[in-house]
């Protein structure tokens, strides 16, 4: 059952369908160009030295060498480059990721509660208010422990291993865990965040393209860690609304 479009994934970075991911990708690419350039230049020097100074009859090692200036400059360059990476790239990107929370009135709010070995996705429903989760009510049929007699919980939508979001709309996902540490990973969104039991950690993102993707667990969470796979679907707003309607609890007669 892996009917997904494999064009999304390959031997390098997966496709990026997020608004913030391009900056991360750019940083990763710049870093790799820098790393490869440094390694090749440095490797050429090493191989050249190995050949030039190989032991052979008539060749002697030199005791006194002049002090090299070049390495000092190289060190300074590396240090400067790292400073640029920090200030120019990493700090702003992380700042964006951690602090620039989108406006809660326009964004879609979703709760994702991880457990061994599933992602429970919780939508507030029509009223926009999440019903409270109670640990003592958490049973197989009610993974989030919702008290359906509560007004706020009546229209709440619970989907297991299925996260649907509308395209071109900021989404705030509030992450938590029922049991152990998991890590919520959306490869195509460049989003990864540990879910720590006892904490509620929000992440946000905006998709630029519709399609069917994956949620992965990136932190060892037990023997089913490998199959803690969720489906991540980006819909148009209309499709998303239809899906929500389908998922909504049927009114009791």
């Amino acid at each position: 059952m892996r009917a997904m479009n494999n064009n999304y994934y390959g031997f390098g970075l997966p496709i990026d369908i997020s608004t913030h991911g391009a900056a991360i990708d750019r940083l990763i690419i710049i870093l790799h160009i820098f790393m490869v350039a440094l390694f090749i230049g440095w490797g050429i020097f090493m191989i050249y030295s190995l050949i030039k100074f190989r032991a052979r009859p008539g060749h002697k090692a030199t005791y006194h060498l002049n002090h090299f200036k070049a390495p000092t400059y190289l060190e300074l360059f590396v240090a400067l480059f790292e400073a640029v990476l920090l200030v120019g790239f990493s700090f702003p990107i992380v700042n964006q990721f951690v602090n620039a929370k989108p406006d809660e009135s326009t964004a879609l709010k979703v709760r994702v509660v991880a457990e061994q070995f599933a992602w429970n996705v919780h939508y507030a429903g029509k009223d926009g208010i999440f019903g409270a989760s109670k640990p003592e009510l958490m049973k197989p049929g009610n993974p989030l422990g919702l008290d359906r007699s509560q007004e706020a919980a009546k229209d709440d939508i619970v989907a297991i291993n299925q996260l649907h979001i509308p395209v071109h709309k900021p989404v705030i996902v509030e992450l938590s865990s029922k049991d152990v540490i998991h890590s919520f990973f959306l490869p195509v969104m460049r989003v990864k965040q540990d879910t720590v039991p006892g904490q509620k950690i929000p992440v946000w993102f905006e998709a630029t393209q519709t399609g069917n993707f994956e949620i992965a667990c990136a932190q060892l969470c037990g023997l089913g860690h490998y199959r803690m796979r969720g489906f991540f679907t980006v819909d148009t707003q209309e499709d998303f609304d239809t899906w929500l309607d389908q998922m909504a609890p049927k009114p009791e007669v």
């Binding site: 997904m4 494999n6 994934y9 390959g10 031997f11 970075l13 890590s183 992965a216 060892l220 796979r229």
Partner: peptide
């Protein structure tokens, strides 16, 4: 790693991005 395959996976082919690599 760039493709996004997590460590400590018993069966990485469970994921589409794992199957690709």
């Amino acid at each position: 790693g760039l493709a996004g395959v997590s460590r400590r996976l018993y069966d990485p082919t469970q994921y589409a991005h794992g199957l690709a690599v």
